[in-house]
């Protein structure tokens, strides 16, 4: 069986890490799937979803690491007017951070419970805030 839902987040900062484990767990463990997988997938190209330990120090390190790897100010090819939007595309760092982090995470479900490690937190990552964002949860199993 496959069960799906989605929820919205308004990010609070240009770079924002939002902990979403509880929302994912609630849906996954009420989905009726006893054994399977839960996928958490972002709808956007300047955001990410990843798993890591929920410590403020690590969140700072992740922001600094991605910021060092992908600087805000650089001569990106994407810095030009986009007729498809009628706007200038000045969000290349968000696209590249999204590429590094990826658009989804997967957690096993066993005996009706999310079966991740004790330290694992699921994060929604905003790299081009502040914006209204959509995240999908897909549960697959039996």
């Amino acid at each position: 069986m496959v069960e799906m839902t989605s929820f919205e987040i308004i990010s609070r900062k240009e770079f924002d890490l939002v902990r979403i484990t509880d929302r994912v767990r609630e849906f996954a463990e009420n989905s009726g799937v006893k054994n399977g997988l839960v996928y958490v997938i972002t709808n956007h190209t300047t955001t990410g979803v990843f798993v890591n330990e929920s410590l403020e120090c690590l969140e700072t390190d992740i922001e600094n690491f991605l910021g060092d790897l992908i600087p805000t100010v650089k001569d990106y090819a994407h810095n030009h007017f986009l007729p498809s939007y009628g706007a200038t595309g000045n969000n290349c760092p968000g696209h590249l951070k999204s590429l590094v982090v990826g658009n989804h995470s997967v957690i096993p479900i066993k005996d009706g419970k999310m079966f991740g490690g004790a330290a694992q937190e699921i994060y929604f990552a905003e790299f081009d805030g502040i914006q209204l964002r959509k995240v999908q949860i897909v549960v697959m199993g039996e």
């Binding site: 900062k13 498809s84 939007y85 009628g86 706007a87 502040i130 914006q131 209204l132």
Partner: peptide, 21 residues
């Protein structure tokens, strides 16, 4: 009219958070 093509609506709350931040 505006030639905005791919843009779409967003809530006032988003604008208010942006202004404050």
């Amino acid at each position: 009219i505006g030639g905005y093509d791919l843009m779409g609506p967003f809530p006032k709350e988003e604008t208010c958070i942006q202004m404050d931040h």
